[in-house]
Design a protein around this nucleic acid. Structure first.
Lengths: 165, 165
DNA sequence: GTCTATAAGATGATAGAC
DNA sequence: GTCTATCATCTTATAGAC
């Protein structure tokens, strides 16, 4: 069984990816984990603390997954594309940092910083094999997720990113 | 001087585009307009009413602006691109419906419907001259806005959408 | 570690005076 | 139309018992 701390991070990540930073609360997290909100505060003092930790873990896991796929012989662009597609298809969730980025202004500094870091490193990662095109490719992927999720249609993502296959 | 109702819509649009649907409140709107929140309720009974009206007006205005530019001889893709760029550059704001779309799940039905309508009609609009590529183009534009706003760098938008010029 | 209790503030919304 | 209450509810966060 996972750590309680991990369970909190799991639920928080799903809720933020579903409703955004402004749309989740300690009470919601606590309720789904099966504890009280005061107990969440024991693990993560404040809301920005929790959200920043969620974003940090998301970034680390995502980049590890990309590297793993690349090691297995997949193209780098295809790795990014298929990882995003899987989340969209399996859980109906788009990129955490894409959501956070849209809320930009009202976000606590440390959370906004994590979202920015993910996007910047993502561009760098894609530039490794597609020199100078990383920004365009990540834009296309984030935008396609955004629209696909809104229309609840994974097929849209496939078509809108077909040129990246 | 504009109507008070219009003034409310103006402020609400800016606040939603800056902080998202979950990140704006009647009090914030009222405060910036210079009235009390009870007075906002007189014009728009509920929060979803106001947000849906904002989204509807945004869609109408945006499509009118696109058609106007096309009438003036601009390419359709270039019209979309320059309209998004202008908002990003002048006000630091991305597409209203792009923001709303990311919050998808937690959104009141009528607001989510308006966001979806904008995106679907946008794809149709772009498909008029770029048959079968409207989805990819709108994805790229929305994603580029999202990233440019997060990094506060309009130049990123230019580079990431250079191929659409 | 988790709980109960509680504080202090924000929020959506309504009733009723003017 | 706009205001002053006022309400019920949600939210973050803390103190202190267990």
């Amino acid at each position: 069984m996972t750590n309680r701390r991990d369970a909190i991070l799991d639920v928080a990540e799903r809720l933020i990816r579903a409703h955004g930073y402004s749309g989740f609360s300690f009470r919601d997290v606590a309720s789904e984990v099966g504890i009280k909100s005061a107990s969440v505060h024991y693990h993560f003092p404040t809301t920005p603390d929790l959200a920043a930790e969620v974003a940090k873990r998301y970034r680390q896991r995502f980049f590890e997954a990309v590297e793993a796929e690349v090691q297995s012989g997949a193209g780098r662009v295809e790795a990014w594309r298929s990882l995003f597609r899987r989340a969209l298809d399996q859980d109906g969730l788009m990129c955490l940092c894409g959501i956070l980025a849209t809320e930009g202004d009202g976000l606590p500094t440390e959370v906004a910083n994590e979202a920015r870091a993910f996007l910047r490193l993502g561009i760098d990662s894609l530039n490794q094999t597609q020199n100078g095109e990383g920004g365009r490719i990540l834009s296309q992927l984030e935008g396609a997720m955004l629209i696909a999720r809104s229309t609840n249609d994974v097929g849209f993502f496939d078509i809108a990113t077909e040129n990246l296959a």
